[in-house]
Design a protein around this nucleic acid. Structure first.
Lengths: 243, 243
DNA sequence: ACCCGACAGGTTGTTTTACCAAGTTTGAGC
DNA sequence: GCTCAAACTTGGTAAAACAACCTGTCGGGT
């Protein structure tokens, strides 16, 4: 008896066609064999062929045109561009991964913008955990984490120690909340005197400010992350499909 | 005879189920009716039901678990956040949509960063089309479009008139290139004296600079867009799923 | 000679019926 | 109380038919 599970036929077909596109057997811009030809070659039924081609279309390998056929687009370059989302990393990676110093951890009054993102009354209080991240011994980023007081109770976020677990995992196991997506706002402004000093940057260099509101699937805000980056040392990169 | 086309059955089912989730008939976390129940209620075949449920799963409305059933997640908040991609709009919308003034249109030497994004030799020349976009009569954004000279030949991009057609469509029909995705870089810096004057902004306010490299499906760069935004008047918003 | 419509044959899109496989829960029987 | 089979669930495959769409060809007309 073999314990290794074989992937479904349509998934095997997907891989086979991907290999042919990558190897150049099917040139970008050219016409893919018709459904009937693929049925004959691989010895599967039409629904199986269609299921495989649907996956390829949704992943961007091919595009189809009713009445004409399916055209090869090539290996989707999107997948190879790693998205450098600032907010993402700080939520999933443990703090022990990046060296830094805890600046603040406790209850604090919310800035206006953060209160709006958390969907609470302005000037109300929430839990704040702020860390100065260093790279090569130099301070590079100031990361602030805000969350409602009721969400911070019973967690280890108040501790001065770096969290060995990702914040995402920490909150998910302890409070049962599920992160779903992040709404990100990016602005630029001049640093305050205190920020410039903490980050060791000239006062005439602007600051990139990234606000990330983490929400659950229904859109309810759970946590807000603010990342401050000196603009002369950082830039943000991202990729997305057209239309 | 009626000219209006009816959507396919599976799409109708998708809409019907979405309405029930939105109206609260199906509560988040609860179990969706089984395939058999949906077949009986809507009078369609199983593949049709499965097709609809597959769409809902891929869009994040529900999640499925073999042997147990399908669970309601709720309305995916992602979809309701319209992505405010800067580069996107300037490529698809005709210039006549946004009032503005053409500042430059012709061959120009490439800045280092743009040459890198276009994957050409530094200091080589390319076609530049620069527009100052105004809102409510005030200048708000400086948009620059760079493309290789061979791609600009035979187009109307050299004309001083606003393009009645989107740049994307314009290039696609005239040169046969197909836009696929955009790699975006965001930085902040202080404006030059000329930029501050053109944009009518104070010299001590930073500038958000968005570079968008438009590529085809194979990753070949086609066009580079640069958008300059005074940071006191603009911010960038975006949303993406976690994991 | 040229243009235009009808038509045939190809393609993908949608729907149906049928059956089997795999995971989960339930309850009957020991 | 435990085991295990039955009955549910979703996942996958096969075969068939019709609809919608595109592209040629073959006419007939101007």
């Amino acid at each position: 008896m073999s314990l290794e599970s074989v992937p479904p036929k349509y998934a095997q077909l997907v891989q086979a066609l991907q290999r042919r596109i990558e190897s150049g057997t099917y040139q970008p811009g050219s016409l893919l064999p018709s459904e009937h030809q693929l049925i004959a070659e691989f010895g599967v039924s039409r629904p199986t062929v269609v299921a495989a081609l649907r996956v390829l279309r949704e992943q961007g390998w091919i595009e189809s045109q009713q009445g004409k056929g399916r055209f090869v687009r090539g290996r989707p370059a999107m997948a190879s561009v790693e998205s450098n989302r600032r907010g993402q990393a700080f939520l999933t990676n443990p703090e022990t991964d990046s060296p830094g110093k805890l600046v603040e951890a406790g209850s604090a009054a919310l800035p206006n913008r953060v209160a709006t993102l958390l969907n609470v009354q302005p000037k109300s209080r929430a839990f704040l955990r702020r860390r100065l991240v260093t790279r090569d011994g130099e301070p590079t980023e100031l990361v602030s984490l805000w969350l409602p007081l009721e969400l911070s109770e019973g967690t280890d976020l108040t501790s001065g120690e770096p969290l060995p677990q990702g914040i995402r995992e920490h909150l998910q196991t302890r409070k049962g909340v599920r992160f779903d997506h992040i709404v990100e706002q990016i602005t630029a402004r001049m640093p305050t005197a205190g920020e410039a000093k903490q980050l060791g940057m000239p006062k005439n260099v602007p600051l990139l400010a990234v606000f990330g509101a983490v929400r659950d699937a229904s859109g309810l805000p759970l946590v807000v992350v603010e990342v401050l980056l000196p603009a002369d040392r950082h830039e943000l990169e991202d990729a997305y499909p057209v239309r």
